[in-house]
Nucleic acid binder design. Structure first.
Lengths: 336, 336
DNA sequence: TGAACAAAGTTTATCGATAAACTAAACAAA
DNA sequence: TTTGTTTAGTTTATCGATAAACTTTGTTCA
């Protein structure tokens, strides 16, 4: 293994000079030595040892990407989370940090992980744990950004989307297409979905459509439950003409469930989703949905996090990104 | 930050004794001290610093999970890879190691990564790079297991499935259902697919069906290309009655492409896939496919890898796992 | 001319844990 | 009694890089 000592010896300088070159402290090294050392680094394929670096510098350049794990649930199977993790990893790498992607299930899991690796910061995709966690992590004095949640705990950075608007424009769109019997599918009390639900209710109210409790499906946003909802809706023949699913994957389930029961989509039932995952283009019909730009979201989150890591204070600790409606094929004009 | 020094001082012993307790060298410590130290560890939430540990012990407990990255391609969008990574991470964690999931694009990327982190071992999901890589890595003396490839380089551990059999039984199944005009879709020259292709050809030959070059679609196994193939097949009206897609995601594309062109699946065209990804159950019709148990595959690979890490020699350095056919709805009896 | 300062380094101590070599006490066997 | 062995530790050096403090030489300007 090639170490900085080897390079230093060959260059006839001290290891500190090598260290200064590597870390770009160029004002401390003559131009000649910079060039010489860089050449030797290339020649011997020298790569600094990160363990040693972290140990002495107290900065690991590791950003934890912490994702929920529940039982046997494998987050890589959830297309939204999966895509999101991919772009986050990329954003982290672009900033010169290392992503440590980990599924975590308990609070002590996280605590241990953070201490183990001495992470410089972390990004959370864990809306459920919110309050408990943030306290614990803040105790560790760990810069952290929480994605898709509405944490009020100070020191916690927030990056999310305008969920209220998403819920509002999705519902308004269905209303404008002539629908009045619009079902809602998603966990109405959960952090982000709560806001989408508020948007849904306000859009109905603004159009003078009475809110109807019996067409609210308050369930987790997964494919299987979408399937059941699709079947149930088609059994209620005409009771519901459109449905707003708070996750595309659930919307796809609803479409399939309804279809299995002899419903044609969008002729018999209009469906609008949320997230604009890749699969929403591949489905048939292609899903009309509320789009959030996850790349922008990830970059914004990582920018914010690295700013906090380096300065410890940030200008703004909450960012709300815009959403837009993408019209495809799963919603039809209703003339009932 | 709590260190082993703090624990040692409080317990009235040296740090080595603490270290011995942590690492389970119990024959070096009295029962009384073991208990005392364990209590203090719990009391102060002490977690050993991995950087320090790696630096002194030369063992990082990190296993690199190296995944291909091509341009903007995000592997988290590929459902097969995505699921596979999930189960690999889980298998690694169960063995007491840490997974470092990384997308890599160039050889120097990998070399740098491995050196940077001083990985104990790595698992490769990179069939394309095969030869070049294995040499480089073996130079670093890194235990590594290659998934889904047929590397002949010694020191490289191989875990894969019986691709030949998969290709054979998929094709035979279509033949038994009365099909004779069976297209093949997949990269015929690529490592694993080559074997599936051999199985395909042999199954045809064994049934006396002539091989037809004009119905081989030699393309990458992605959804979009599946779409085009589906469209093309439906344009060739009756020229092809069944297709063997070497990846489910491509099969789903073919189904959709054909359907967009007015073909009904499976009535007008039978489709069989490969991999048995989650989405193959969610599709409509549900996809008949060749199933590989990725959990078993991942566990086998990690078992093998950790064995090599600890013993440096292994009993057997190639494992070939079985495959089976899962019949769902996308293949129909043909009576032409 | 001399004080102040900048440039280009070096030296030393340290991060936290561990491997390897060493010690001391208790006991057994010859 | 002496030697050997086991148990339960401790001490010391080290992993590789870096922060902080220090040195040396050359330059500036009042």
């Amino acid at each position: 293994m090639v170490t900085s000592k080897d390079i230093a010896k060959e260059a006839g300088v001290s290891t500190m000079t090598v260290s200064n070159v590597i870390n770009g402290n160029h004002q401390k090294v003559s131009a000649k030595n910079i060039e010489l050392i860089n050449e030797l680094i290339k020649k011997y394929h020298y790569v600094p040892n990160l363990s040693a670096r972290s140990l002495s510098s107290k900065s690991t350049k590791i950003i934890g990407v912490l994702v929920p794990l529940e039982g046997d649930y494998n987050f890589f199977k959830d297309p939204y989370l999966s895509e999101l993790i991919g772009v986050i990893e990329y954003a982290i790498r672009k900033k010169g940090y290392f992503a440590m992607i980990r599924s975590v299930s308990t609070v002590s899991d996280i605590s241990e992980l953070v201490k183990n690796w001495n992470m410089d910061g972390a990004i959370f995709l864990l809306p459920h744990y919110d309050n408990i966690l943030h306290k614990i992590i803040s105790k560790n004095n760990l810069p952290l950004v929480s994605l898709d949640s509405y944490s009020d705990y100070k020191d916690v950075l927030n990056v999310g989307i305008n969920d209220y608007k998403g819920g509002y424009i999705a519902t308004k769109f269905l209303i404008n297409k002539g629908h009045k019997k619009i079902a809602f599918a998603g966990p109405t009390k959960e952090n982000v979905v709560k806001e989408r639900f508020n948007g849904y209710k306000d859009a109905l109210a603004d159009s003078g459509i009475p809110y109807n409790d019996s067409i609210i499906y308050d369930v987790s946003p997964v494919y299987d439950l979408g399937l059941s909802i699709g079947k149930e809706i088609s059994n209620r023949r005409g009771d519901i003409t459109a449905v707003f699913a708070t996750a595309d994957i659930m919307g796809l389930g609803i479409i399939e469930g309804a279809r299995l029961n002899g419903y044609a989509i969008p002729n018999d039932l209009s469906v609008i989703g949320f997230d604009n995952i890749e699969a929403s283009i591949f489905s048939s019909p292609k899903l009309t949905t509320i789009s959030q730009n996850i790349t922008t979201k990830a970059e914004c989150a990582i920018d914010l996090l690295t700013e906090k890591i380096n300065n410890s204070t940030v200008k703004q600790n909450r960012y709300v990104l815009d959403v837009e409606l993408i019209e495809r094929q799963s919603v039809l004009q209703y003339n009932g």
